[in-house]
């Protein structure tokens, strides 16, 4: 491993706050969480937001604050503790992900079928999408691979798109992005990503709409 450099491009505070507070839907939470695996600074930021949420929780109005109910609940929970009820399934012995994915951090590496799906579908010379994809709540996730110098073909951009670099680097009109960098593009924005460097660039791609490539470039 070469010298570790911290990412320079971070998810927008809107995404970090929504991730910390829990309102962010799963696929975008995967995008943020995988960036966190590369970024100690954003891990600290999320913890700071969680601490703020903890303060807000303490300031919440107590519900049904009649004391007997609380004492009843407490007695019930202590009873569960005493009876050693399993309640929670024991942590499943996670099957180690295949060695070919060792370079990829959690939570992406074990995420929803990704370790079992191999293979790529080429969409243009040097550019491919993973056979694996997962969609929920209107957002989809898949991997995008760009060979050095290969440009992603023009595509409709009706909604938010996010790219997180897992390997290599790519460039577009907004900058140059390397391992761990997260960048999001708003609806209606236009960009032309192109693989750079000497190895294939692999990104986690999340999209708020279906991916539709235009026929003509």
């Amino acid at each position: 491993m070469t010298l570790y450099s911290q990412p320079r491009h971070h998810p927008d505070p809107d995404l970090l706050l929504a991730y910390a507070g829990g309102s962010l839907a799963e696929v975008k939470a995967l995008f943020v969480a995988t960036h966190l695996a590369y970024c100690p600074a954003c891990r600290a930021r999320v913890r700071a937001f969680e601490a703020q949420c903890g303060e807000w929780l303490e300031a919440c109005d107590p519900a049904g604050a009649d004391d007997p109910a609380v004492e009843d609940m407490l007695a019930a929970v202590l009873g569960m503790i005493d009876s050693g009820l399993p309640g929670e399934p024991p942590p499943a012995g996670r099957t180690p992900p295949p060695a070919r994915l060792a370079w990829m951090p959690e939570p992406l590496r074990s995420y929803r079928g990704l370790p079992d799906a191999d293979g790529w579908d080429e969409v243009s010379p040097g550019v491919a999408l993973s056979a694996w994809s997962y969609a929920a709540g209107g957002t989809s996730a898949r991997l995008l691979r760009m060979a050095p110098g290969a440009a992603v073909p023009a595509h409709h951009h009706a909604a938010m798109e996010g790219l997180l670099v897992l390997q290599g680097c790519f460039t577009d009109e907004y900058g140059s992005f390397t391992r761990g960098d997260a960048v999001t593009y708003g609806a209606g924005s236009d960009h032309h990503a192109k693989g750079a460097g000497v190895e294939d660039c692999i990104c986690l791609l999340v999209l708020d709409a279906d991916l539709v490539f235009l026929d003509e470039g």
Binding site: E26, L30, E106, R112
Partner: peptide, 15 residues
Amino acid sequence: ELRPEPDPSDPALAG
């Protein structure tokens, strides 16, 4: 839903 979170014991965790 799942709650994706980085794994503190992951060797691939940076930093």
